[in-house]
Simulated assay, not measured.
Amino acid sequence: MARPTKASIDLAAFRHNYRVAKAQSPNSQAVAIIKADAYGHGAVKLAHALQEADAFGVACIEEAIELRESGIKQPILLLEGFFEESELELIQQHNFWTAVHSQAQIEAIKRQPQSSQFKIWLKLDSGMHRLGFSPQDYPAAFEQLNALPQVDNIVHMTHFACADELDKSMTQSQLELCISTLEKLDSKTSSFANSSATLAHPSTHSEQFKGYTRPGILLYGADPLSHPNSASEQLIPVMTLTSKIIAIREVKAQESVGYGERYRCERDMKIGTVAIGYADGYPRHAKDGTPVMVNGVRTQLVGRVSMDMLTIDLTDIPNAEIGSTVELWGKNVKAAEVADCCDTIPYTLFTGITRRVHKEYID
């Protein structure tokens, strides 16, 4: 590996964060969400590093099969269910769990051999309005599935729209709707809590709703909450994105740096060029002032990010030199800080890392 850009993945931190999630709901199992290649961290590597996981969650059958073929034995949940009826044979063959969110999916299951045994996560639309049966239609959907010989068991499932925004009341409203919808149904096994609800809304995974939590972004050490709490403060970043300084130059006051003359030096400055750009997944729309760290000192991005390089202020870091390591985000510069400067969220930073970035796994 010649180009110095890399993402170091801390497997011990990943396990630690899973245990933080488990500690918030000790009576529940935790489905580790590793869709989208484990949010850009490498799903196969992370799944094998988390032997203690109760189950894994992915977005589609391609992701699930990749895990099975790599030797993963734990249950794997298809969070969006199946897109075509032909997938049901593979779901049965590999013993996947599947979400069901539409009448068309129920009809497809009815057409399967009666010897089939599907484990269903039935989706209730409690207010997200993305997938799932309405509260009015949900009981009938449940009864249809519950009567089928092809159905082994059913887990009640919903998704919260605002669990990360602690000043909003919608999570409680959604929970109350779940309670009223499910109170007369036989199965009581539930999965309501995503990362934010796991960390900050214990009522969503209380004894009344024991079953499964679904930690996602918290596993990767990014705090999803609008206001950190004692649980989220325990999280450890898993990915540290670094590169190195490949050039240093002196730039006079009032001269510009980078494309479009966006940044103009207010004083004589020392500018470092770093081997990372938007082709690696670092956001082009990062603003001047986005934090980075060099030799243990926080400094900032200056000038527009280009395809393969970006420029940073080294004026007050006298020991910075060609070859010095630059942390773009990780344990010292939190991904959330960078995301705020890019008008985005840590999810898009992590999943945006391209294949040109070498991943290094540390245990």
Rank of each mutant, 00 (worst) to 15 (best):
Q172T: 00
I179C: 04
V151I: 08
I109M: 08
V151L: 10
Q103A: 14
D167H: 13
N153S: 15
D137L: 12
S126K: 03
W121R: 09
F96G: 01
A104N: 14
Q117E: 12
A108S: 11
Y138R: 03
M128V: 03
L175W: 02
K123Y: 07
H159I: 00
S134L: 13
E143R: 14
T98S: 15
M157P: 07
A140P: 08
L145S: 04
H94Q: 08
Q150L: 10
R111A: 14
K119Q: 15
Y138G: 01
W121N: 07
H101A: 08
P113F: 04
N95H: 15
R130F: 13
E107K: 15
Q172C: 06
L145D: 02
N153T: 14
Q103R: 15
G127W: 01
M170C: 12
L166Q: 12
P135Q: 04
H101T: 08
Q114I: 13
P113M: 07
S134E: 11
I109E: 02
Q117P: 14
Q150W: 14
T171H: 00
A147R: 09
F160W: 02
E107H: 15
V155Y: 08
L175Y: 05
Q150E: 11
S126W: 03
I120D: 03
K123H: 06
H129F: 11
Q114C: 14
Q174V: 00
A108P: 05
A108I: 07
L145E: 02
I120A: 06
G127R: 00
G127T: 01
F118G: 02
L124D: 00
I179N: 02
Q105P: 10
Q117A: 14
K168V: 09
G127N: 04
C178D: 07
L148K: 04
F133K: 00
Q144R: 10
I120T: 03
T171K: 00
F96T: 01
D137N: 13
Q144E: 12
G132E: 01
H129C: 07
H129M: 07
L122P: 03
F133S: 00
S115P: 09
D137K: 12
L148V: 06
G132C: 05
I106G: 08
K168R: 15
A147V: 07
D152R: 14
P139L: 07
L124A: 01
L131C: 10
V151Y: 07
K119L: 12
I154Y: 05
V155M: 10
E107Y: 15
C162P: 09
P149R: 05
G127F: 01
L175N: 02
Q172H: 09
K119A: 13
Q144T: 11
Q117D: 11
S169P: 10
Q117H: 15
Q144N: 12
S102K: 12
Q105H: 11
M128D: 09
T171A: 00
L122R: 01
I179S: 04
T158R: 01
I154F: 06
G132P: 05
A163C: 07
A141R: 02
L166M: 13
R130H: 13
A99F: 11
L122V: 02
P149G: 05
G132Y: 04
E107T: 11
I109Q: 04
W97E: 12
Q117G: 13
A161F: 13
C178S: 11
V155C: 07
